[in-house]
Amino acid sequence: MKILVLLSQVPDTTARIAFTNNNTQYDAAGVTFIVNPYDEWYALVRALELKEAAGSGSVTTITVGGADTEATIRKGLAIGADEAVRVDAQPTDALGVAQQIAAYARDKGFNLVLAGKETIDHNGGVVGAMVAELLDLPYVPLASKLDLAGDTATVERDVPGGVEVLEVKLPLVLGAAKGMAEQRIPNMRGIMAARTKPLNVVPAAPVDEVARTVKFELPPAKGAVKMIPADEAGKLIELLHTEAKVI
């Protein structure tokens, strides 16, 4: 079982969001970067569990980004990935990221490719599906459970009104969401081992540039909150009806 996990680097969930260069760039000054939570907690951990259950196989992580992502990539190795790949590129859009990943993965014979549901900075939720299309593989978004029996995967995903249980033959690409696994905290041995595990840097492949973010802005500030005394709490319902007109 050869598993590829798409691992992206994102600002810490509590990082201050600000922009520089005339609001064209995220201001990374003083920001701590982490592994995107969906990639780490769900995709990577489930990949490790499947490998452990099979008793053989390998888990490779792949990250498209500059050398500044290597500390984050080591975290994936510390949690338990066998090796990591960094594609040395900084694409302007999701298709560029997907094309880099597909170019690397195409002839490697991965049985399973796990992405996160979405990155918490771009919030696209699209790279996994694009990789699947480029590799001509099925893709299931928002998967909350994954089990394997031979080359058949049983996948659950949340749909409006319930949970859909799907069956797909490997190879397959998945977008991992909550439920797929429980977060693992790397231990000292893992952190030590990560230092000597391979982190292969591969050069960028040619990609298409089809979209770019022109500028960022912060949302308009919220108006002042209207406080209602607790002993007149019922008034809230009245205001929601007559003033806010939402009920």
Binding site: A98, G125, A129, M130, L134, V210, A211
Partner: peptide, 19 residues
């Protein structure tokens, strides 16, 4: 749409505005 729009974009080498 999340399973289709990105695939269509990748197939047609088209830029995608997600969401």
């Amino acid at each position: 749409g999340k399973a289709v729009a990105p695939r269509v974009a990748a197939r047609l080498k088209a830029g995608l505005v997600a969401g």
